[in-house]
């Protein structure tokens, strides 16, 4: 989950400046959520897959990573919207369930396809961004986008503690498993979870003092300073310009059709 293996590969998206890459991907996501035709969004999805391949992200891994959960979940929740009881309209197909006639409508079907395509495309772009960018750089981009320092500082510090806390939780679960096994009566299980949350908070609170002392020893005076080593090149600007032209063209074609 927290692996940066693909961000360190020498692919197309990895070669771009993180700020330009984030803006470009955001532009594609915004375009995907604004378009109203499945074909236009499908074209963007194809572009996303091409970008994934050119960035040396294995396509099977990428498809599994993007389709698991959100698009599949969205696919499931759109099923009721196919039927005339939720989306009235022109009948496409009908069948009987327990003696009741069920009608699938054109509007319901088109709406469901559009909904799932849009979500899959948006989620794919965001996951592609997180896969091809070092997480610390991605968080630093926030500062470049004008987010207040207190948020950026908190985000970057939070990111570091996630690893530590995730490990703590893993150890807690392992310790519970090794002592009481997998089967536990639910009330006892709830108490164990609550106790461990308290324990984790207390450890986190103690850590706060250590972190503050570490900050002081490195010269923290109450004003956060953030390191920024971003540098844009010719390719970055070409890429951004090409994305703007592409998105504008897609909008233009969609409006013409």
């Amino acid at each position: 989950m927290l692996c940066e293996e693909y961000a360190l590969r020498k692919g197309f998206l990895q070669s771009l400046d993180s700020r330009i890459k984030t803006i470009t991907i955001l532009l594609f996501v915004l375009t995907a959520v604004s378009l109203q035709r499945t074909s236009s969004i499908g074209f963007l999805y194809l572009l996303c897959l091409i970008l994934a391949v050119s960035s040396k992200v294995p396509i099977v891994f990428f498809l599994i990573r993007t389709w698991v959960f959100i698009p599949l979940f969205s696919l499931c929740i759109t099923i009721p919207a196919l039927f005339s009881i939720v989306t009235p309209g022109e009948p496409v197909s009908s069948f009987f369930i327990l003696g009741a006639k069920v009608i699938i409508t054109r509007q319901g079907l088109d709406g469901a396809i559009l909904f799932v395509t849009r979500i899959t495309t948006s989620v794919s772009f965001v996951i592609l961004l997180s896969l091809t960018t070092r997480h610390t750089e991605l968080l630093k981009v926030l500062r470049g986008l004008g987010i207040p320092k207190i948020f950026v500082l908190t985000v970057s510090m939070c990111y570091r503690y996630l690893y530590l806390f995730a490990e703590m939780v893993e150890n807690i679960f392992m310790a519970i498993k090794s002592r009481i096994g997998l089967v536990v009566q639910y009330k006892r299980g709830q108490q164990i979870v609550a106790w461990n949350i308290v324990n984790m908070w207390n450890r986190a609170y103690q850590l706060n003092n250590d972190v503050y002392n570490a900050m002081l020893s490195r010269g923290y005076t109450g004003e956060p300073r953030l390191l920024s080593k971003f540098q844009t090149g010719f390719l970055d600007w070409v890429c951004l310009l090409a994305s703007v032209i592409l998105c504008t063209t897609i909008f233009y074609i969609e409006n013409k059709l």
Partner: peptide, 16 residues
Amino acid sequence: ARQVPLLAIGAAFSFV
């Protein structure tokens, strides 16, 4: 000043 890291820790805690 001492509580600055607590925000980050609180965020990580909320995540975890």
